[in-house]
Amino acid sequence: MSEPASISISVTATGTAPLHGITVANCGKNCSLPIKKNIKSLPFIEEKYLDQPHIRVAIHKNSKKPVLENWVNHPENRTIGKLLKIGNYGLRTGTKLGEYYFCALDIDKKGEQFHFSQISYIKTSKGIHYYLLLKKLPENSPLFYQGEKIGRVMSFGKQIIGSGSIHSSGIIYQFMERGEVFLKFKGEKELANYWNGYGIVLEKKNGSIN
């Protein structure tokens, strides 16, 4: 099983810090300084790298539903911090972030078999979210494990709830540090090959990718 490449300093989103092999321990302008442990319970990563009008989405309080019906075509001018004061926030997937497309992996099952090596994730009420960076825009595709659907790749036209938001059950979406923040790939085939190493199958409309 091949590991995804580290995020290089050349992957830079306008108005944000460089995505230079981002980990909670070494991101930011002063990489030698330790990050406070309690920062994991806040939307630190999202505010630092994804807090942009074309990515953020206003979400109703304790909900997953966007405030605007036509949210896909409406940039959100309020920051993540301001959105959290009045409700939740989401992140538009399939959107450009520097030279890459920001997407996400939404897994609706719990289990260590879905915790990828040295990759941080967002803990949700039912499972986990992973943040992805891809050179080519992928499709919105389901994921299967041992024949059972476990989640999906979130791409254009979708949004995923960010850390710091609150589920209707009262559970807070929480960033969990395990290493790199983004899984980075050239395209769907490289992405599928990585997941195959964990027994996860990415299935497109015309069949699975091998």
Rank of each mutant, 00 (worst) to 15 (best):
S6R: 11
S8M: 09
I9G: 03
V11M: 08
A13C: 10
T16S: 11
T16P: 00
G21V: 08
T23S: 14
V24H: 09
A25L: 07
K29F: 09
N30K: 06
N30H: 09
P34V: 03
K36Y: 08
K36L: 14
K37Q: 14
I39L: 15
S41I: 06
I45G: 02
E47Q: 15
K48T: 12
Y49D: 07
L50C: 04
Q52I: 08
H54T: 00
R56E: 00
I59L: 00
K64I: 00
K64E: 04
K64R: 10
H74K: 15
P75A: 10
N77I: 14
L83C: 03
G87S: 10
G90D: 03
G90C: 03
G90L: 01
L91D: 12
R92Q: 13
R92V: 05
K96V: 13
G98E: 13
F102V: 10
L105P: 02
I107W: 11
I107G: 11
D108H: 11
H115A: 05
H115Q: 14
F116T: 07
I119K: 07
S120E: 02
G127C: 11
Y130F: 11
Y130T: 10
L133E: 12
K136V: 13
L137I: 05
E139A: 15
S141E: 10
L143G: 04
L143M: 14
F144N: 02
Q146R: 11
G151E: 12
V153F: 14
S155V: 07
F156R: 11
G157Y: 07
I161W: 04
S163Q: 09
S165G: 05
H167F: 14
G170C: 12
I171E: 13
Q174G: 05
Q174Y: 03
M176R: 15
E177N: 15
E177C: 09
G179D: 07
V181Q: 04
F185R: 09
E188M: 09
K189L: 00
E190V: 00
E190H: 01
L191Y: 09
L191D: 01
A192G: 01
N193C: 01
Y194W: 13
V201C: 01
L202F: 02
E203I: 01
K204W: 00
K205S: 08
S208N: 01
S208G: 01
I209S: 02
I209T: 04
